[in-house]
Write a protein that binds this DNA or RNA. Structure first.
Lengths: 353, 353
DNA sequence: TTGTAAGCGTTATCAT
DNA sequence: ATGATAACGCTTACAA
C-alpha cells in the first residue's frame, strides 16, 4: 500500500472494515471494543503505517491540547540559573503530572510582541506567568477572555487571573527588625533588578518608581518599614557576581559603609559577603549580611546565611494545582504563601567602628 | 450580543458582512485587504469579543503548531542544574527564534510510558532529544514515521534521526595523554551517571556494560585508550557534591590512591578537588585533577581547571538549525562538534609519594 | 480585492 | 459492541 499522503484513521477503518468511530475508539480506549475488532483495527493500522491519531486534529476536536504555557522574564539559561525558579518549575511539573500536561516555555523577551504572539498563537490549555510584567497584562487578559485559565506567580495579574503571592514585605520586614534589634542603624539593601535586564546601580526615587518586579518592590518596602531611609543598590540579576559588584559599591567608602546589608536574595548575599571579605571586613563582626530565599548556596561555607526561607516549590505547585482545578471547571482563589525566618551566622551586633 | 458559545471567525464575518476567508485574511495578514473591509472586520471582532483565531484549529489546518518538543532525562530542576544543559537550551532557543517556535519540555521520566505518551500526543512540529536513552528510540522512530523531524544531541538516535555529537572520546583521550605525559600512571576516573538516577559507586565490568549515557561511555573509552585499566567510579549526577563523594572514595586508602583523577565534568572535578583538600592532599602537587566542559564553576578559585572546553551552546544551536532546515523541507546531515583542550593549574607531575 | 468551497483528521453523540 | 453523522474552527487554492 503505497500512497503519497499519510494514512488517516478513515483509511485504517476502511482497511479494517469497521466504521471510523470504532477505529477511533480503539485508539482512545474510551469505549469497550471486542477483541476481534480491535485486532483487525490494529493490524490495519500496522499495514498502513498509521501510528495513532494526529494530535492536532485530536486537540481541535477535544478542545484540549495538554499544554500549559509558562512565560518567564529571562532567557531560559538565565532564568534557570535561579534556584528559586528551578524549584518553582519542579513544583509546577509535580502538580501537573496527574493530568499529564506538558510545559511549554514561552520564549524569553526579545520584545514583548514576540511573547504576545506566542501567547496568543500557541494551543495551550492554561498559562502560568512567572512574575508577569505589566507589559504582559494585555496578553493575559486576552487569554482570560478566551476562557483560558491564567495564573501568575508573584506578578501583577489582572481581572480573572489567579495570583500566587508571597508575603515578601512581611518577611523582609522581619529580617530588618532582626537587624534593628541587633542595634544596626546604618543599613543598606541590595535589590533584585528593577526589571529584567536592567543595569545595576544605586536607586534614586525615579529608579524606585520604575521597579517592575513585584518581589523587588515588596521587599524594598519591607526593609523601608524599619529603615525608612535605607539606601538601595539594584543588582543587574540575582547572581553571586552581581552581589559582589553591589558589595563593592556599598563598601567603597569606609566612612559611609553600612554596618549591615539586606540582600534580596541568597545569591546576592553570598556576593556581598565576598565583597566584604575582599574589602577586609569580617562577617558578621564588621558587617552583617542577610539573604532571602533559603536556598543552598554552593561554596558559602563556613557561613550559614541569616535569611528568609521561602516555599519556592510550593509556589509552583500551587500554580499547578490552580491550573488543574480551573481546567476541571472549578473556581480558584488567590493564594498567599508565607516565608520563615532562619537565623544563621552572618548577622551580629554592629561594632562601633 | 450575548451567546453561550464563543464567537468564531464565521460569526465575525457575518457581523462584518464579509466572507469567512476575508475575515481570516484580516487576521493572518497573508493577503492585502482594503482598509474599509479590515476596519469592519476588526470592529465586528471587537463587538463580538473575538480575540483571534483558535490556535488549535489553525494548527490543524496549517499542519504546524509552532512547537518544538525537547525531551530530557531528568526532572527540570535537576536538568537545569547542569550548566551544559542551560547553554544547550540557550543555543536551541536562539536557533529557533527566527521561525518563532516555542519549546515544550517533555516531562521528566516518572516512567518511560508517560514520556512516550507525551511524545505521541503533543502537537509538535519537531522534537529534540537531549541524550536519548535507548528506551526512547521507539518513540523517536514513530515520530520519524509521522514525518516529524527528530534531532538527538549526544544520544543514540535511530533511522532517520539527525545526530549532533561531540568528539567525547578524542577529547578525553587528549586529557588522558596530557596526564600520561606528565608521568602519571595511577589514574582513576569519575564518570557521569550510568543512567539518569543511577546510584553512585565503583564500576565493575557489568556496570560499565550498563552505561546508557553516551558521553559517559565515550569519555570512559577515551580515558581507557591511554590507561587501559583505570578504575572508574560513577557519580550519581554531575554535581559538585557527587564529585566530593566520589573523591572521598578515591582517596580513602592512602596506599592505593591515584596520583591523578579524570573527572567527566567540571562540576565533578570541583568536588574531587574539594575531597582532595579535605584529605589533606594538595592539588596539583599530590594529586592532579582534570575536568570536562569548560564551564565556569563558582567558588573554584584559585584553581583554574585543566579541562576540555566543549561547545555546549553550539550543540543546542546546531540542533535548532537542523530542525529549522528540516521544517523547511531540507535534508540535514549528522554533525560532529569538537572540543578544545584548556590547560589550567590543576595538573602537574606526580610526586613519588 | 473579495468570495466559494473543499477540506484538515478527529471525536462525541446518538442510534441501532 | 458498532456505526452514521455532525461538528471542531480555521486556511487556502481558485474563481470571480
Amino acid at each position: 500500500v503505497t500512497s503519497s499522503r499519510r494514512a488517516t484513521i478513515a483509511d485504517v477503518a476502511r482497511e479494517a472494515g469497521v466504521s471510523v468511530s470504532t477505529a477511533s475508539v480503539v485508539f482512545s480506549g474510551r469505549t469497550p471494543v471486542s477483541d476481534g475488532t480491535r485486532q483487525r483495527v490494529v493490524d490495519a493500522a500496522a499495514a498502513l503505517g498509521y501510528t495513532g491519531p494526529d494530535p492536532r486534529a485530536a486537540s481541535l476536536r477535544r478542545g484540549r491540547s495538554g499544554i500549559v504555557a509558562v512565560a518567564m522574564q529571562l532567557r531560559l539559561g538565565d532564568a534557570f540559573l535561579d534556584p528559586v525558579m528551578r524549584l518553582q518549575m519542579d513544583g509546577l511539573t509535580d502538580a501537573l503530572a496527574p493530568v499529564g500536561s506538558d510545559i511549554l516555555l514561552i520564549r524569553h523577551q526579545p520584545d514583548v510582541e514576540a511573547v504576545e504572539h506566542s501567547l496568543l498563537t500557541t494551543p495551550m490549555d492554561a498559562a502560568v506567568f512567572m512574575g508577569a510584567s505589566p507589559l504582559l497584562r494585555e496578553a493575559a487578559s486576552i487569554l482570560v477572555a478566551r476562557g483560558i485559565p491564567v495564573v501568575v506567580i508573584e506578578g501583577d495579574g489582572g481581572e480573572g487571573v489567579v495570583e500566587i503571592r508571597l508575603d515578601n514585605r512581611d518577611a523582609q520586614r522581619q529580617l530588618a527588625r532582626h537587624l534593628a534589634r541587633l542595634g544596626h542603624e546604618r543599613v543598606a539593601t541590595v535589590t533584585l533588578p528593577r526589571f529584567p535586564g536592567a543595569e545595576r546601580g544605586w536607586l534614586d526615587a525615579a529608579g524606585e518608581a520604575g521597579i517592575r518586579i513585584q518581589p523587588a518592590r515588596e521587599r524594598l518596602a519591607g526593609a523601608r518599614d524599619v529603615f525608612p531611609d535605607l539606601p538601595a543598590f539594584a543588582a543587574g540579576a540575582s547572581l553571586i557576581d552581581e552581589g559582589l559588584a553591589a558589595g563593592r559599591a556599598l563598601f567603597a567608602d569606609p566612612r559611609t559603609r553600612p554596618t549591615a546589608v539586606i540582600a534580596q536574595s541568597d545569591l546576592l548575599a553570598a556576593g556581598v559577603i565576598r565583597a566584604a571579605e575582599d574589602a577586609g571586613l569580617r562577617v558578621p563582626h564588621d558587617v552583617s549580611v542577610t539573604g532571602f530565599d533559603g536556598v543552598v548556596v554552593d561554596g558559602l561555607a563556613p557561613y550559614r546565611l541569616t535569611t528568609i526561607v521561602q516555599p519556592a516549590a510550593d509556589k509552583g505547585r500551587a500554580a499547578g494545582e490552580a491550573v488543574v482545578a480551573m481546567l476541571g471547571g472549578g473556581r480558584t482563589a488567590d493564594l498567599l504563601l508565607t516565608c520563615e525566618f532562619r537565623d544563621g551566622n552572618t548577622t551580629g551586633p554592629p561594632t562601633g567602628t
